[in-house]
Design a protein around this nucleic acid. Structure first.
Length: 449
DNA sequence: TTTTGAGTTGTTCGA
DNA sequence: GTCGAACAACTCAAA
């Protein structure tokens, strides 16, 4: 009798270099590819769900259209399917998010009761979260030492595409694919092949990555954040392709950040929505109706600070924002508008195609000074200075804020300049809000009043 | 246990 | 215009 196993895809939507799939193929002659449309997806933004739906379509195409969709709560749906097809095991790649861990524990219990089991092989990270530890066995809380230890850690070479006997749709009953939300965004191919093509196109330009990655007007970043989020490519593949130039090193460091934040959330899952540094809970933030109105102006890209507005509009229009600009808009929300970083993080999660709890929340905590590093209270971005420095020609701003299209050069960043009637004046005065932020910070520093 | 050096991404001010 | 110092004090990591 032929053995059957289930390969349950979640956030590793690829066939190449997927240890869980290799293990599934080695274990059973027949592999049922499964994707569960979890009701909790409704909480994710439309853009991310649209990206996911496209990536799933690509996965289905490369798996001989055998992908089985089931809608419902994973703990019941997975066990039901496993029983239906008589699977001896359900293979998954690790999901280390707080929700993913709780879900998988529940699914594992349900499968055990049904006489089969959940087999977790591999993770979406080069090094499994929790595996990099200090000499005393405790986790790192500072990036640089983590990064050094992480680089010393070895990871396997990328694997290929295994020979798989797909056994799913149409002989196994299916629900439909997830709804494809109607969003007006061109993802330029949300799939495994497209991600590899994107990487191949980026690699020749990596030599200038170190400096140019900070200039949002250029297309100098890899743009692989969503591909990494959805596992269209594994970071160890990227690491294996890197050379030794300073651009390559710089890129590896960015991957290390992704691994570091996953590690932090692995050890401290509550850091997803709570201050890691609980002393910062005493920091006063505004949450009244007036604050909510400030929030809406920020979210809509109507702050009157061109680089901030450009970033917020790029996010709404494309589901992605350049990293440098993410820091600028985040600093503006926290330090100029005095709003809780969680509000900004929630907005990002609602719109980013690459939205990932660990990277997003801890990135916000870094800006807010509530995170893992010693937060220098003086790290307050000046949106005008940042604009001049990182968008020196003003091209990025003009691309996303058409009201300013007629203003030439770096002049677009100047708040004092006469502006068209349809573009708002600065909603706050950066200089005074900077002082206000410093004042509020002083409330939580020991020793001073 | 103690000590030492370091800590992604900044801004402002005054010489 | 350029440059270096100041902006606090603390915690972490490792010797």
């Amino acid at each position: 009798m032929t053995r059957t196993v289930v390969m349950w895809f979640r956030r590793d939507l690829r066939l190449a270099d997927l240890p869980a799939l290799q293990a599934a193929a080695a274990d059973g002659a027949n592999v049922v590819p499964l994707f569960v449309v979890d009701p909790t997806f409704a909480r994710a933004g439309l853009a991310r769900r649209a990206f996911m739906a496209e990536a799933l379509q690509a996965l289905d195409d490369s798996a001989g259209s055998a992908l089985v969709y089931r809608h419902g709560k994973p703990s019941s749906v997975v066990a039901t399917l496993a029983a239906e097809v008589g699977a001896s095991a359900v293979y998954v790649s690790g999901d280390h998010s707080p929700y993913g861990r709780a879900r998988d524990a529940e699914v594992a219990r349900a499968l055990d009761e049904a006489g089969t089991h959940l087999v977790e092989v591999g993770t979406p990270y080069a090094v499994q979260p929790g595996a990099v530890v200090k000499a005393d066995g405790r986790p790192y809380s500072v990036f640089s030492p983590f990064s050094r230890a992480w680089r010393r850690h070895r990871w396997p070479e990328p694997g290929g595409v295994p020979e798989v006997d797909w056994c799913g749709a149409p002989s196994v009953p299916c629900d439909g694919p997830p709804d494809l939300p109607q969003v007006d965004i061109d993802f330029t191919g949300a799939g495994e092949a497209a991600a590899h093509a994107q990487w191949e196109a980026f690699l020749p330009r990596i030599a200038t990555y170190k400096e140019d990655r900070d200039l949002p007007a250029l297309d100098a970043t890899s743009r692989l954040s969503a591909a990494l989020k959805w596992g269209l490519v594994h970071p160890r593949q990227l690491l294996a392709d890197l050379g030794t130039g300073e651009g390559d090193e710089s890129f590896a460091t960015e991957l290390a950040w992704r691994e570091f934040y996953a590690d932090v959330v692995h050890h401290r899952p509550r850091g997803g929505w709570e201050n890691l540094d609980r002393r910062m809970d005493a920091m006063p933030v505004d949450t009244d109706e007036e604050a909510r109105s400030r929030m809406r102006r920020w979210a809509a890209g109507l702050t009157g600070y061109p680089i901030v507005d450009a970033g917020m509009r790029q996010l709404l229009a494309t589901g992605w924002m350049h990293n440098r600009v993410r820091m600028v808009v985040a600093s503006f929300l926290v330090k100029d508008l005095h709003l809780p970083w969680q509000w900004g993080a929630r907005h990002f999660m609602g719109h980013l195609i690459d939205g990932d709890l660990a990277s997003n929340s801890l990135g916000w905590q870094w800006v807010a000074g509530t995170g893992t590093d010693a937060a220098p209270y003086f790290r307050i971005f000046n949106p005008t200075t940042q604009g001049r420095r990182f968008d020196p020609e003003g091209d990025y701003v003009r691309r996303w804020v058409p009201e300013l299209a007629a203003i030439k050069g770096a002049g677009v960043h100047e708040p004092g300049l006469r502006r068209p009637d349809d573009y708002p004046p600065p909603m706050v005065d950066h200089r005074s809000e900077r002082d206000e932020a410093l004042l509020r910070y002083r409330v939580v520093t020991s020793g001073s009043r």
